[in-house]
Nucleic acid binder design. Structure first.
Lengths: 222, 222
DNA sequence: CAGCATCCCGATTGATACTG
DNA sequence: CAGTATCAATCGGGATGCTG
């Protein structure tokens, strides 16, 4: 196992999660356990052997645990340990920094977990002051429940169609959802079936206004 | 240039700073411009060709700028752009997470920048409540000025022997300095010349108490 | 289908030598 | 001092095949 051989905390962290695909794998596990195939499909571009190798390394390092679900639906899942889950602030900060690069949201992959995490990085507590609402984001198989209240955002995986009599439910694939939240309805396309909004137009407005992309980097010299 | 081809902010960040040695290089630049040879010696283990390649890539990406210093001491230096400097929260969080792994502080490299950054990640505002002091940390050529006041830590490079009539000045190489701050005088060794403390024993106590290592990870399941 | 192991190839890294 | 050039070793990516 490759190491920087450096006592610095940063390089010691990189010794564990610095290999290619390690952070993206952890990103997919942030909202709860996932199966091998979930990870494989959520991470387009990763080779199956690399995915297996990373999971094995992360398990050995104590970042991830492999667990078998109870008999109703027996399946092997990978899950973050408490230490692994403590990487969330790192991911948030990384995402906040990286979101300040231009990108064509179409023609690139975007997993449901990525979108959900991005809401955490772009949540604007100031803009959300006074807002109190529940929403459900349905992206194919992946469904997330969102609560905004007291300037705090809570988001987690949710069973579809189980929303708490939610005032708002959005159906779209992740890239379309991102376009809608960050760039408005017109950017998300208006074709039937691309995005479906259940709830008042007002609550949808209220929701999207709580999330703002950071400014792109100023190219000026220091 | 290799890319995750993923619209997620996290992977876009990794497209820029995810290659091996990129983050350590940025760590060395956090406290200001450095020359090529400074980086080379502060990063034991990096090959000069890799260092050159990373710097070139980081410059092209807009994270780093190459600049020539004014004629008194003309030298090429590398410096973070504002966008690059915005990586500091990422490094802080990474360091905080990574510092929770066991390590033998001796027999591993530790650069002066690493130690200075680690003070930022381990600063305990609660423990520093009511503390008001200036200190200077002298580690060979590298000298840092530290100010603690109002529960806030300020740290930056400083010209040696220019301290503001500082109440405290510590001389040691970075690993010894780390041992002293985090594990106390006995761990730092008591041999003459290993560590030199100018100032009252009380202020040194006050200083070190402001920094606490996080707890090691609990190995229990989630 | 879940979870890998294998094989091959191109890309990246690392150590060293070398140049302006 | 400040890098570039060279070359061997390793790693990542993709396809394929195996096993329960």
């Amino acid at each position: 196992m490759r190491s920087y051989l450096d006592a610095c905390g940063i390089t010691r962290a990189l010794d564990v999660v610095g290999e290619r695909w390690a952070i993206p794998v952890i990103r997919e596990l942030i909202f709860g356990p996932r199966r091998y195939s979930d990870l494989d499909t959520a991470l387009p571009g990763v080779s199956t052997n690399i995915l297996g190798a990373r999971l094995k390394e992360l398990v050995k390092a104590g970042v991830v645990v492999k667990r078998r679900l109870a008999p109703p639906t027996p399946a092997n899942v990978y899950e973050l340990t408490p230490w692994g889950a403590a990487l969330e602030p790192v991911l948030i900060e990384l995402g906040r920094w990286g979101s300040r690069t231009a990108v064509d949201l179409s023609h690139q992959a975007l997993s449901a977990s990525s979108l959900a995490l991005s809401l955490k990085t772009t949540f604007d507590a100031h803009a959300a002051a006074g807002v109190e609402l529940d929403a459900q984001l349905v992206m194919g198989e992946d469904c997330f429940g969102v609560h905004i209240g007291s300037g705090v955002l809570t988001i987690g995986r949710d069973a579809p169609h189980t929303g708490r009599a939610s005032g708002l439910r959005l159906h779209a694939d992740p890239p379309t959802m991102a376009s809608y939240v960050y760039q408005g309805l017109e950017a998300a396309g208006t074709a039937f079936d691309v995005i479906r909004i259940e709830g008042s137009r007002g609550s949808a407005e209220l929701f999207t206004r709580c999330f703002t992309l950071p400014e792109p980097p100023t190219k000026g010299t220091l």
